[in-house]
């Protein structure tokens, strides 16, 4: 009996340890990559922003978040009534990237304080100081002024090269898509995740994995979970 209890306890500890690796802790490992980032936060003087945070240890890769996001952010008109859509994942602003060995990384806008995406926008600021791509002061989300956007994809390129890469140029217009709207303060991905892997919280600036692209996160998780960094596949 004693042995069994001991074993159980050991089991839980091991599991908790493994899970813990997916959340935070050991922030120093990737300090180089987000050191600059957190400095930007400190300099920006802005209060900490609330954003969607992923617990990679709890995420199962089921993609329910994608459908919940798309359903809310791509409403449809049915008999003259606006209703949530059917949730086609292609229109989701949160996107699950799957790797082999089995790692799933849900990527979502990091709401960076220093907005490299907006800074990359070449469109002349309007009288309110907004480029075509800008941060909405009320919601703190990134938005695009479709009327002024020239479809040059600079915002998407900046995001991909410097941060998470969630901004996708529309294949036809080149205009940016994939920015998190926070669903008016009630993010549906958080609400619908069956595993409690997503939360809508104030971020720690030095949070592990903060603002990184899915490939980098996946590599780190694969190393921690499986002791390997070799996964094939493309972007």
């Amino acid at each position: 009996m004693t042995t069994e209890n001991k074993e159980n306890r050991r089991g839980v500890t091991r599991r908790d340890f493994i899970k813990g690796v997916g959340v935070g802790g050991g922030a120093l490992v990737l300090f180089g990559q987000f050191g600059v980032h957190s400095a930007a936060w400190a300099l920006s003087g802005e209060p900490a922003l609330k954003m969607i945070v992923v617990d990679y240890g709890k995420c199962t890769g089921c993609r329910t978040c994608e459908t919940a996001c798309a359903s809310r952010n791509r409403p449809v008109s049915v008999k003259g009534k606006e209703l949530p859509g059917l949730g086609n994942p292609i229109h989701a602003n949160i996107r699950v990237h799957s790797f082999n060995p089995d790692v799933d990384v849900a990527g979502v806008c990091a709401m960076c304080a220093d907005t490299p995406c907006a800074k990359a926008c070449p469109v002349e600021p309007d009288p309110r100081g907004r480029r075509a791509f800008y941060r909405d002061d009320a919601t703190h989300t990134m938005r695009n002024d479709e009327k002024r956007c020239i479809g040059c994809q600079s915002c998407a390129k900046a995001c991909a090269s410097q941060r998470t890469g969630v901004i996708r140029p529309n294949p036809e217009t080149g205009r940016p898509e994939g920015m998190c709207t926070l669903c008016g303060g009630d993010p549906q991905c958080v609400k619908r995740c069956p595993f409690g892997a997503l939360s809508y919280v104030e971020v720690r600036r030095d949070r592990k994995f903060y603002g990184l692209g899915p490939e980098k996160i996946a590599a780190e998780l694969a190393r921690n979970w499986y002791g390997t960094t070799s996964f094939g596949g493309a972007q």
Partner: peptide
């Protein structure tokens, strides 16, 4: 085991 994995939109994993 290190992870629970789910298929499309499955809450069981």
């Amino acid at each position: 085991w290190v992870r629970d994995i789910a298929c499309f939109c499955c809450p069981l994993a």
